[in-house]
Simulated assay, not measured.
Amino acid sequence: MTQSRRMLVLRAVVEDYIRSQEPVGSAALSKERDLGVSSATIRNDMAALEDEGYLIQPHTSAGRVPTEKGYRYFVDRLATVVPLSEAQRRGINSFLSGSVSLKDALQRSARLLSEITGQVAIVASPSLSKATLRHVELVPVAMSTLLAVVITDTGRVAQHGLIVSAMPTADDINRLSSAVNEQCNGQSLSSASETVRALGGGTGFETVREAADALADSFASMALDERANELY
Rank of each mutant, 00 (worst) to 15 (best):
E194A: 13
Q3V: 02
L138S: 05
E52G: 02
Q107S: 10
A223Y: 09
T203F: 12
R72L: 11
I163F: 10
C184G: 10
Y232I: 08
A158K: 13
T207H: 06
G118M: 04
L215E: 02
I173R: 09
M143I: 09
A228F: 09
A28F: 05
A212T: 06
R175L: 04
V180S: 09
A110L: 05
V24T: 09
R6C: 03
R19C: 01
L215R: 05
A158N: 11
R77S: 07
T132V: 14
N181E: 14
G63D: 02
G53N: 12
G25F: 00
S101T: 11
Q21W: 02
T195V: 15
V37R: 00
R43M: 08
M143G: 03
M222A: 11
A121R: 08
S97D: 05
V141F: 06
N44T: 13
A216Y: 04
G155D: 00
G204N: 06
P126I: 04
Y232Q: 06
L96R: 14
S125D: 11
S85V: 03
F95A: 10
L231H: 09
E86V: 12
V82H: 12
H135E: 14
R175T: 06
I163R: 15
R89M: 07
E182W: 13
L29V: 08
C184N: 09
A214C: 07
E137L: 07
V65L: 11
R6W: 04
N93L: 11
R90E: 14
R77F: 13
E52N: 11
M1C: 13
T207N: 05
Q3A: 01
Q88G: 08
L8E: 13
R134E: 12
M1H: 14
S101R: 14
Q119A: 14
C184K: 02
L8S: 10
D45N: 10
T132Q: 15
R227F: 08
I173G: 01
R77K: 12
R89Q: 09
A179C: 10
D16P: 03
G53E: 04
S218H: 05
P83R: 12
L55C: 01
V196E: 02
V9E: 00
R64L: 05
A47T: 13
L96P: 03
T154V: 08
N44S: 15
E206R: 08
G118E: 06
S94E: 12
Y17G: 02
A179M: 08
L10N: 03
S26E: 09
C184S: 15
S94Q: 12
V81T: 04
E115I: 13
R156W: 03
N229C: 03
V150P: 01
T145A: 05
T169N: 10
I163H: 11
A28L: 10
E210R: 02
S38I: 06
S20P: 03
E226I: 11
V196S: 02
N174F: 04
A216G: 09
L96M: 15
V120R: 14
E210N: 04
V139S: 08
Q57T: 14
L224P: 06
A105K: 06
I122Y: 07
S188I: 05
G204T: 05
D104K: 05
Q187K: 10
Q159H: 05
V82I: 15
M222E: 09
A87I: 11
V120E: 15
D217L: 10
G70H: 00
R72I: 04
K130F: 11
A87V: 14
S4Q: 00
E68A: 04
T132G: 12
T145Q: 08
A124P: 02
R6Y: 03
L55G: 00
S165N: 07
A47F: 07
